[in-house]
Nucleic acid binder design. Sequence first.
DNA 1: TGGCGTATCTTCTTCC
DNA 2: GGAAGAAGATACGCCA
Lengths: 99, 99, 99, 99
Amino acid sequence: MPDVGGINSPQLRSFIERAERLHEEKKALEEDLKELWAECRGVGFDSKICKKIIRMRAADPDKLDEEEAMLDLYMRALGMRGTEDANARDARGEVEHAA
Amino acid sequence: MPDVGGINSPQLRSFIERAERLHEEKKALEEDLKELWAECRGVGFDSKICKKIIRMRAADPDKLDEEEAMLDLYMRALGMRGTEDANARDARGEVEHAA
Amino acid sequence: MPDVGGINSPQLRSFIERAERLHEEKKALEEDLKELWAECRGVGFDSKICKKIIRMRAADPDKLDEEEAMLDLYMRALGMRGTEDANARDARGEVEHAA
Amino acid sequence: MPDVGGINSPQLRSFIERAERLHEEKKALEEDLKELWAECRGVGFDSKICKKIIRMRAADPDKLDEEEAMLDLYMRALGMRGTEDANARDARGEVEHAA
DNA sequence: TGGCGTATCTTCTTCC
DNA sequence: GGAAGAAGATACGCCA
């Protein structure tokens, strides 16, 4: 009987060891990423900006737009932006683009 | 002699208690903030957006602009944006605004 | 009429500004704490240990005991500790000291 | 000539895409771990305790002992524990066990 | 080049 | 249960 104090020991051990294995793999990937960013910086790129780009590419565009719309609404209410922004004007054909 | 095992006990105690006092004050402010946001949501505002606005107002505008400029440069290099954006065209007077 | 896009602007502004004020005060306290820990390290203390002590003093003793008991139970189930530890044996007077 | 604004575009793109690939793999592992802990909780284990055990198994035992020793030292300096604890007395054979 | 201050990243906790 | 915030650990960059 493998139980200790009401604990199913083999089952517990299995969870622990599976988690440790996954942790190791994760750690390895993090190491790879760290090296990649070091190399990236080494050739003169700004790794911070690169990471930001990745975040933007990963984000759901729809959700991002929705949030930005509400943010814009609130900012206009606070006078942090003109009541109408350039995009809104453009959308209604009030802007004449150059030939 | 107040030292225990090479430790200056009164000094250690002083640090601990000062830190605990500061923690308490911080905790109280966090409680106030939590109530404020609850009230904010209660009248129909989106507290998440409000917090984002506060972060934007707190950020250094110069640094923010600089970062955005580099972000834009990288995105254009990746073809995620047109080689020229609306602002750039506008800056060179190629846009005709409505009367 | 102060509403912009269905937003009660003065009310929104009030929330934002009250939150910003609280944030500032919180920031100041965090700064104080940072300085305190720097001073603490400066005289040779280990700030990490100090923080741990503060957490322990703040925590509910019962809950802390309970967690430790469960940790011990799990570790014994995994064979990381003897099925019985020294304290338990000691408590029942079953310890035979070296001849 | 693939440069845009002084940026070596293909090189930048390569970094971004390699990073995205690594991110995806990392994300997948995190998902696996999340599922594992959910399953672990589902059969009645305390995942928080399990994670703590994993941290302990991963940590350097010497460093762990050292930290605990310092914590004990500090706590005794603060009077949170007796100047000597039971283990220390026991180690020197000064314990008188009940009849 | 090694310590130190800063900043990022991860993890843990709390709230919704 | 999932997301937002806070706290802790870690890594980077600077300056001596």
